[in-house]
Design a binder for these strands. Structure first.
Lengths: 143, 143
DNA sequence: CAATATAGTTTGTTTTACAAACAAAGTCAA
DNA sequence: TTGACTTTGTTTGTAAAACAAACTATATTG
């Protein structure tokens, strides 16, 4: 195991700073569209799923009571809808509305633009390398 | 310019997911020590500085009124102190207390452990590559 | 000195998040 | 099939976080 402290600090600091950079982009773009990061994530999940409240809580790693409020606010804004589950009259499936879909799409495009701009300084080869390394990290931790 | 959509999506998705992974680590470690991410950042800044409220607002990219509350809560917990500025009787310099310093140190060590664990799957050479690439990105955007 | 600018706080609002208590609907064992 | 438990979501109460506008006190400057 390597314990070179400079190397360690570098990689940790770098990844932490990078995460803040990306989150700042997400926050800024979100704000421009009247969306917080968590709402951005919510709509992102709903782009290709109609999960129950409980499943949403799991996806977002939040308490179920937090999901109630999150969905409430999004629903009030017409971005999302609760549909009574056909199988279980207790539960709902949450789905995105056309308005919500439009909003995420616009937001996502802008996020892509900004993140791309952030890696503009890398060469083609470096970007490919980065993708590879990031995949390896994510594959390592995301089960 | 390369516009391969797969490549684009990969790099953007990857960096976004990676940022959430790191932020989750920060959040989890913070929670274990009774600190939110923003408080972690606050203490981090104060490790080697004694900024004014206004400077803190700039560092953290928050409104000054948000800083009042943030520092209030940290001060109430004995992590931080307001010291009247010697030059300007309106202003304060915020400094970390020994208790605050202890807390950040403990937190930081744990963050290092967890982030290191996340890149454990990479080889020595890959980690060095990653550091280089991340530096290049950060140098690109952080002015 | 008077006018203006700056540093922080206060007040009021919203979002986010949690936890505990609850209601309604399902499930399962006897 | 009924009674006991479980699950799903909401409600209620609390707190942190964030902003904006109004405000206070101190500096600065013409």
């Amino acid at each position: 195991m390597n314990n070179d402290p400079i190397q360690n600090q570098s990689i940790v600091d770098g990844l932490v700073q990078l995460s803040f950079l990306v989150q700042e982009i997400l926050g800024r773009v979100g704000t421009e569209h009247g969306l917080s990061i968590i709402q951005l994530r919510l709509l992102g999940i709903l782009r290709d799923r109609e999960p129950s409240m409980r499943q949403l809580a799991k996806h977002l790693n939040l308490d179920k009571s937090s999901i109630t409020g999150l969905v409430d606010r999004a629903e009030r804004r017409g971005l999302v809808e609760r549909k009574v589950s056909p199988n279980d009259r207790r539960g709902f499936n949450v789905c995105i509305t056309p308005a919500g879909r439009e909003l995420t799409q616009a937001g996502n495009e802008e996020i892509v633009r900004h993140v791309k701009a952030a890696v503009e300084g890398l060469t083609e080869r470096e970007r490919a390398q980065l993708v590879m390394l990031v995949r390896k990290i994510l594959g390592n931790t995301v089960k």
